[in-house]
Amino acid sequence: MKLILTAAALVLTTGAALADAHATTVRMGTEGQYPPYNFLNDAGEVDGFEREVGDELCARAELTCEWVTNEWDSIIPNLTSGNYDTIIAGMSITEEREEVIDFTQNYFPPAASAYVAMDEGADLEGGVIAAQTGTIQASHVAESGATLLEFATYDETVAAVRNGEADAVFADKDALAPTVEESGGELTFTGEDVPLGGGIGLGLRESDDDLREKFDAAITSMKEDGSLNELIVKWFGEDAKTFE
């Protein structure tokens, strides 16, 4: 009888441990096409600033990260439907998005958006401006009076400028900077920088309050010990905006 009870207790303990292990696994949803925030490396793995930030946040929150990629235009619907547990994909915190999902505090401070064109004389007010679908930049262009040309990916917006479909691309300046540098003078910044959004945060389902609190605490600890600023400088350069 004692052996049976012991075996039963062992099964229950093992089951609880497995349930615990499963409960601590968090699926991190990202795009994988927005360097240096996130991209797929030569091994086909998620890499970049947000991979390092996400892994460190999970470690501090005592969670296990699993990385999932998803196309940008359906990244919020696939969060709310349960295909993953967070969005960590260069997503700016906006009132419109907060009507559908929750955000943690920002892990990247509010930064500038900018225009890039083939020449500095591009018509930004009455011309055709490319932007990625579903971004705050696309919304800004739509309200600016210029003609908005939307694409599913960041790379397509830049290609539209290069092939003459668009006069300029409007996107996060931090994403555009390496593109301009690597273009060898083919592309250039033009016009004034535009501050948009409340910084970048992790998106979560509105029902996941406990998970949001864990990530908020981890983000706070990274801000306090300077490790978040270190990663920002590592991926975006010495001139990048950091937390004070």
Rank of each mutant, 00 (worst) to 15 (best):
E95I: 05
E96W: 03
R97H: 07
E98R: 14
E98N: 06
V100M: 08
I101M: 13
I101T: 06
I101G: 07
F103N: 01
N106H: 13
Y107C: 01
F108C: 12
F108Q: 11
F108G: 08
P109R: 01
A111K: 07
S113E: 07
A114L: 05
V116K: 10
V116S: 09
A117G: 02
A117F: 00
M118T: 13
M118F: 03
D119E: 13
E120Y: 08
G121T: 14
G121W: 05
A122P: 11
A122S: 11
E125L: 09
E125I: 02
E125P: 01
G126Q: 03
G126Y: 04
G126M: 00
G127R: 06
G127N: 09
V128I: 15
I129E: 09
A130C: 08
A130F: 06
A130S: 14
A131N: 03
Q132E: 15
G134R: 08
T135F: 04
T135C: 05
I136N: 05
I136L: 13
Q137R: 10
Q137D: 12
S139N: 13
H140Y: 15
V141L: 11
E143D: 13
E143T: 06
E143R: 14
E143Q: 13
E143C: 02
S144K: 12
S144I: 09
S144M: 10
A146N: 00
T147W: 03
L148E: 06
L148H: 02
L149C: 05
E150Y: 04
E150L: 04
F151W: 10
T153N: 10
T153H: 08
D155W: 08
T157A: 06
A159Q: 15
A159L: 14
N163R: 14
G164Y: 03
G164C: 01
E165L: 11
E165G: 01
A166S: 10
D167K: 02
D167L: 01
F170W: 04
F170T: 11
D172Q: 12
D172S: 14
D172C: 03
K173D: 05
L176S: 06
L176R: 07
L176W: 12
A177N: 08
A177W: 02
P178D: 08
P178A: 07
E181P: 02
E181R: 10
S183A: 07
G184W: 06
G184H: 09
G185F: 04
G185P: 00
E186H: 01
L187E: 10
T188M: 10
F189H: 11
